[in-house]
Nucleic acid binder design. Structure first.
Lengths: 247, 247
DNA sequence: CGGTTCATTGAGCCACATCAAGAAGTGTGG
DNA sequence: CCACACTTCTTGATGTGGCTCAATGAACCG
C-alpha cells in the first residue's frame, strides 16, 4: 500500500496477533489494509459519547482509553479499561452505549461501521476472534462486578494493581516474572477512583496504606513498584494458590 | 425424531426465536435436534461449580439461574441472572468461571462442549447469534457495574426491579404496557442481596421503604406490583426521558 | 513566580454492615 | 388439625468503612 505514509502495513502492526484480525491470513489482511484508517487522539480527548452515533468500529493500536458512564448528578463509573488490541464499538449497534475517553495518547485503527459488519459476516476468522475477545471482555466485566459489589477499598486497589500487572505481563509474553513487578499507572487518581467505584480521597488513602504496609512502593504517584505480587494478590482477596501455584 | 419422548422438537421450542439457534433454518435445526439433550434441575440445585470442568454448553429452556462467585470468606456476588434463552458455558473454555445455581426449577437444552464448538465453527448462523447475545450480555454486565459501583441501596433495588420488568416485557413482545407492572421475584432475599451487592437486611429495608413511598406494593414478599414503572425508574436514577419518552 | 492541576491528609458524618431479636410463612409428624 | 421445627423475611440497635468537606502539599507551566 503506497497510499498513506502514516498508516503502517498490517503485517508490521504491533497488535497483529492480538486484535480482531489476529487469526486472519495474508489475503484477509489485504482486504483490511484497504478498508482501514488511522486516527490519533491526544490524552484526555473524548473518543465517543454515550448515546451518540459511532461511525467506526475501532481497535486500539497504542495508548489507553476508558469506557465509562456518567449519571446526571455527576457520579461516574468506568466499566472497562481499554488497552492496545482492545476494540471500541459494537457491531450491530450504531450508537455508543458508553463514553470513551483517551487516557493517554491513543491511536486507533478504524473501519466504517457498515464495512466492518460486512467483514465480520464474510470472514469467519474475524467473527471467531471477535467472539473470543468479547467472551474475554464479558468475563473481565463479571470479575470486576465481584470487586465492585463485595470488596473493600483496600482490596479494590490491590485487585486493580494485580490485574494490571497480569495484563501487562500477558501482553509481553512472560507469564510470571516472579514476585517483582513495576508499572506506570495510565490513569489519574480520578479515573482510577471512577474505575474502583471509590472517591479520589479513599483511593489515595488506600495507596498510602499499601505503601505503609510495604506492599507497594511509589517513586512518583503514577509509578508503582510491587516487590511481591503474590502478597499484593493476597491483599486483593485471592487464595494463595490462584495463579502463582508454582511457588 | 422418535428417540426421546421427553425432548420437544426444536421447531416447537418455546425459545426457538431467542436462543443461540434463533437464526437457524430448518436444515440447521435438524442437526441441532440430533445433538441436543435435555436436563432438568430442581430449584436450589447447583448446575456448575466455579473452577470445575463443564461438560456441556447449555441454553436455559425454562426457569431461572444465577451466575455467581464466592470468596473464601463467604462473601458472594451474583454476576448474572440467567433466564429462558440465556446460555451457560463458554465455547473455548473447559472450565466454568462461575458457580451456576438453579433458582427455580431449570430445564436446559445441552450440547457436548466439543460438539457445540464444531457447530459454532461450521454454522455462521449460530456463531453470529452467539456473538450478538454475548455482546448483549457484555453490555448488561457493564450496566450492572455502574449500579454496583455508584448507586445507593435504594437505587440498586429500584434498578433491579426496573430491569426485571424490562426483560419480562421484552420477552413477551409488548414493549411498554404503560405505567403498571406486576412480577414474581424469582430470587430469595439472599440471592437478591447477592446480586445487588448488599446485605439481606439492607435489601429488605429498601423494599420496605419503596413500599412505604408507594413505589411498589408487595402482596407477598415474592410478589411485587409496580403501579408506576416510570416513577420506579426515576428512583433508580434514570433521567425522565430514558425509555418512556413517549409520555 | 503566581496560577493551575493533581495528589495527599485530616476531621466529622452518614449509609450500609453487623449483631440480635422477632414475625411470618412452610412443612412434618402426631 | 394442631404443635413444632425450620426457613425466610422483617425490624431494631449499634458500629464502622468510606464519603464529604476542607486544607495543604507537590508538580507543571506560561
Amino acid at each position: 500500500m503506497t497510499g498513506d505514509r502514516s498508516i503502517p502495513a498490517c503485517l508490521a502492526c504491533p497488535i497483529r496477533h492480538n486484535a480482531v484480525c489476529a487469526q486472519c491470513d495474508a489475503t484477509e489482511l489485504a482486504v483490511l489494509e484497504r478498508a482501514k484508517s488511522y486516527r490519533t487522539y491526544p490524552a484526555g480527548a473524548q473518543i465517543a459519547f454515550a448515546g451518540e452515533p459511532l461511525r467506526h468500529f475501532a481497535t486500539i493500536v497504542s495508548g489507553c482509553a476508558t469506557l465509562s458512564r456518567t449519571l446526571e448528578d455527576g457520579r461516574r463509573q468506568t466499566v472497562g479499561l481499554l488497552l492496545a488490541s482492545d476494540y471500541i464499538g459494537r457491531p450491530g449497534r450504531a450508537v455508543s452505549a458508553y463514553d470513551v475517553q483517551a487516557v493517554s495518547e491513543v491511536t486507533l485503527c478504524r473501519f466504517e461501521r457498515a464495512t466492518f459488519e460486512r467483514l465480520v459476516r464474510q470472514t469467519p476468522h474475524i467473527a471467531g476472534r471477535l467472539l473470543s475477545m468479547t467472551l474475554d471482555e464479558l468475563d473481565a466485566a463479571r470479575d470486576w462486578a465481584v470487586v465492585l459489589g463485595r470488596m473493600t477499598a483496600r482490596e479494590r486497589v490491590a485487585s486493580f494493581l494485580t490485574s494490571l500487572v497480569r495484563r501487562e505481563s500477558a501482553r509481553q509474553g512472560r507469564s510470571g516474572t516472579g514476585a517483582e513487578a513495576e508499572l506506570v499507572l495510565p490513569l489519574t487518581r480520578e479515573a482510577l477512583a471512577d474505575h474502583l467505584g471509590l472517591t479520589i480521597e479513599t483511593t489515595s488513602r488506600q495507596m498510602t496504606a499499601l505503601r505503609r504496609d510495604g506492599l507497594i512502593q511509589t517513586p512518583s504517584p503514577r509509578q508503582i513498584r510491587i516487590p511481591d505480587t503474590g502478597r499484593l494478590a493476597r491483599a486483593a482477596g485471592e487464595e494463595p494458590d490462584a495463579s502463582a501455584a508454582a511457588l
